[in-house]
């Protein structure tokens, strides 16, 4: 088993599949009355959050607690972190506390890689800057597999601000590893340079959402921050939503079986119309529930053994 989960690139197909299979077992066990499992008793998991993300933190916390790990939440607010303590000094403190795993959320890309140099335990990336968010990609893959029964050969469109999206990077890496065909879609200003060479040469690029939709089994809408238009990535929210928003007419262009995903939080009316977000084809609520199972699987596989 791998030691750290810093990037979806840390996962080969076998390991990624093992995580998804383990998550399925965890999900099955989560349905029962006694939710707690003893596997990580005596292990300490630290949630080190430099960015506010209550959803992700709670998801990791629930996952660790269901496996009976001790959880320490070390959030940037009201701690030495906000007083300017360096990541390295914080790491040494966590090391002294005997952290077996550190789940880190940070606004700087690569912070988990840096942290892994300074702690002996496992490092799990819970989102770093505009780099990656591998557990989000795992839960997205899990959701696709449970809805559509497979990942191999699945056609997935990832739509929106791919340039600034850590969710997109991790999903492209993971999904192509698992045999899906990924097309990133958005205005050219928001598609990173050489995305194919950088992430996976199987990645397609399109600027035309309408052309991609009829071919897609999954369409994943990324959050688009309206601030991006101040930086001239696109002219206006209205134009963005006309060209790249998923509305009801566009939903109808999708094949019958296709599903709609969104990593949240959504800008309803911007990248996704409210009717689409709430439609039965949307997996948005499921994604949240699957998050706990996937994170249990990750923590168990990283910490469960020797």
């Amino acid at each position: 088993m791998i030691k750290h989960l810093r990037s979806a690139a840390d996962l080969d197909a076998a390991t990624a599949t093992l995580i998804l299979d383990t998550a399925a077992e965890m999900a099955a066990l989560s349905g029962r009355e006694v939710k707690k499992l003893p596997a990580l008793r005596g292990r300490t998991v630290v949630n080190l959050f430099y960015e506010d993300s209550t959803r992700t933190r709670i998801s990791f916390e629930a996952a660790a607690k269901r496996l009976s790990a001790d959880v320490i939440n070390f959030s940037a607010k009201g701690s030495s972190v906000s007083k300017g303590e360096s990541l390295k000094d914080t790491a040494l403190t966590l090391q002294a506390m005997g952290a077996d795993a550190v789940v880190i959320r940070h606004s700087a890309s690569g912070a988990p890689h840096r942290l892994a140099n300074w702690v002996e335990g496992s490092v799990v990336n819970a989102g770093d800057g505009t780099h990656e968010h591998p557990t989000q990609a795992l839960l997205d893959a899990y959701t696709m597999r449970s809805r559509l029964g497979r990942l191999d050969g699945l056609k997935v469109a990832i739509v929106g601000d791919v340039l600034h999206s850590r969710v997109a990077r991790s999903n492209v890496l993971l999904l192509t590893t698992l045999g899906a065909q990924v097309t990133v879609v958005g205005p050219p200003t928001l598609i990173p340079l050489e995305v194919g060479a950088a992430l996976s040469d199987k990645t397609q690029v399109s600027y035309d959402l309408d052309a991609v939709l009829p071919e897609s089994d999954v369409v994943m809408m990324l959050r688009v921050q309206t601030e991006r238009m101040q930086d001239s990535y696109f002219p206006s929210a209205r134009e963005y939503s006309r060209r790249y928003g998923l509305d009801v007419p566009r939903l109808k262009r999708l094949p019958e079986h296709a599903i709609v995903m969104h990593p949240g939080p959504m800008n309803r009316g911007m990248e996704i119309a409210p009717e689409v977000a709430d439609s039965p084809r949307s997996t948005i609520v499921e994604q949240v529930a699957n998050g706990v199972s996937v994170r249990m699987a990750v923590l168990y596989l990283l910490l469960g053994g020797k």
């Binding site: 077992e25 469960g304 053994g305 020797k306």
Partner: peptide
């Protein structure tokens, strides 16, 4: 499946889970 309840989990590499049904 008893994997998550074993008292020797830490003595070897992580084990894959079996099914509980």
């Amino acid at each position: 499946d008893i994997t998550l309840y074993r008292d020797d989990l830490r003595l070897q590499a992580t084990r894959a889970l079996g099914k509980t049904e």
